[in-house]
Write a protein that binds this DNA or RNA. Structure first.
Lengths: 104, 104
DNA sequence: TGGTATACATCGTAACACGAAGTATTGTTT
DNA sequence: AAACAATACTTCGTGTTACGATGTATACCA
């Protein structure tokens, strides 16, 4: 997939990955893999950005002797997903424009 | 619309605007406006990028005493539109993932 | 004379995905 | 026990890119 297109989908995909249940970095990557692949450095950058934007909260927990950071979605994060659903309607309209070509 | 999402759509929209008939900067902006708004500086940057990528060719022509640059799509440009149509299928799959949340 | 539309160009900036590299532990294979 | 893969998170530098601001210039209309 085109990298620019990906950029518009990544944030919302990450938020969706933790919507139904809290999750952590490695798990998020695995869940998203069939749909959208991303490097670890990308994911952790996104998680920090979403935390700074108050779209999710973080809790560090120990798991099998190793540290794990669990991410929990906030109301703001849920709002971001809703925003995307509106944007998606625009994408559909744009897709029709692209199929048709100019405004005939 | 979210700016990151826009980034993934702009190039292809511009190419679509000149697919059925050659066009020029100002006209392209007007044609796209109902679907995707962009500033002039953005469009001319995109047009240069697409020219460098050999997705379109440019012909300067005089029109009413003023210079106009007409843009013509190439095979490579048409290929880019086809690529987007494949990407769009992925977007649909991603959209379903986002609606559903994690991989239940 | 002044305003608006047309038409294109340049510059600086901020956002962002990514590869590369690093740290550290657990589990598995040889 | 040594070697390697998997798990888990972090930091840094880089290239791409949309955009606002600003500039240049002509045509048209009131």
């Amino acid at each position: 997939m085109d990298i620019q297109l990906k950029r518009g989908l990544l944030d919302v995909c990450v938020l969706s990955s933790i919507r139904n249940a809290d999750s952590y970095g490695y798990q998020i990557i695995k869940d998203m893999k069939p749909y959208l692949e991303m490097s670890e450095s990308t994911l952790y950058t996104i998680l920090k950005r979403l935390e700074a934007a108050e779209m999710l909260t973080v809790k560090s927990m120990e798991h099998g002797g190793r540290l794990r950071k669990y991410y929990h979605i906030t109301e703001k994060g849920l709002g971001r997903i809703n925003e995307f659903q509106k944007d998606f309607q625009e994408i559909l309209s744009i897709y029709r424009f692209i199929q048709r070509g100019d405004d005939a």
